[in-house]
Amino acid sequence: MRLYAIFVYMFLYIPIGVIALFSFNAGRHASQLQGLSTKWYGIALSNPFVMDALETSLVVAFISATCASLFGTMAAVALQGIKGPVRTAFDALIYISVMIPGIVIGIATLIGLVTIFDQLNPLIVAIWPNGIEPPQLHMGFASLIAAHTLFLMALVIIIVRARLSGMDRSLTEASSDLYSTPFGTFRQVTLPLIFPAILAGFLLSFTFSFDDFIVAFFVAGSETTLPIYVFSSIRRGVTPEINAIGTMVMAVSLIMLVTAQILLRRGERRNK
């Protein structure tokens, strides 16, 4: 039994380990190890396409994780206090955005937004003052952020709600009995208690957005994110450069994930 478990852990980690090992390859060929060096990291980090894609991915991940954490927390707090059809509707929306495959979300966002833009663009041209080039709405940075915010928001709502429902009610009741305003109670009691969950939600959201390929593939327009860059490079063949990029991406996600885990667990313990 133990042997079997060791085997499964090897199955899970050897492929990642092999990529990491070969990323330090000194040779020019992807699959022949010829001494160790960090030169492929240097090459990857001085490739303008990689750096551009990395910048896009980081900016998109940061903005969409921020929006998702903010809107998601607001919604989770409000949903805690209400019942009836509004709550049912939101539960259904959260369920739908988690259930529907990412690829269908990507497609729907693409053709939905293109349709809306096609309607709005002539309007903008019509109302824009003469002599100035009117802006045209198109798929790109903003649509990518909007699409990521959608599915990350559902994630944040789920995480923050779990924490809110695990919270001791008597704390907020005590606060309002002591004549605190609802906002005062929120700021001084609720927020400190749910903050670890919000932060964990933010970190998970950031990782998801940073790693997302399928939604970005449809809605990024002419923008290239790091996963899109990696995907198109893989199509052209396996290189040590992709190994280096892959290892860095994995390392960043691992750091974020471990931090999120620690935050969630520490918060859980404090609530008990």
Binding site: D211, F213, I234, V249, S253, L257
Partner: peptide, 9 residues
């Protein structure tokens, strides 16, 4: 972590 990188492996 990235399913893209893991499949690439």
């Amino acid at each position: 972590t990235s399913i893209l990188i893991r499949s690439y492996a």
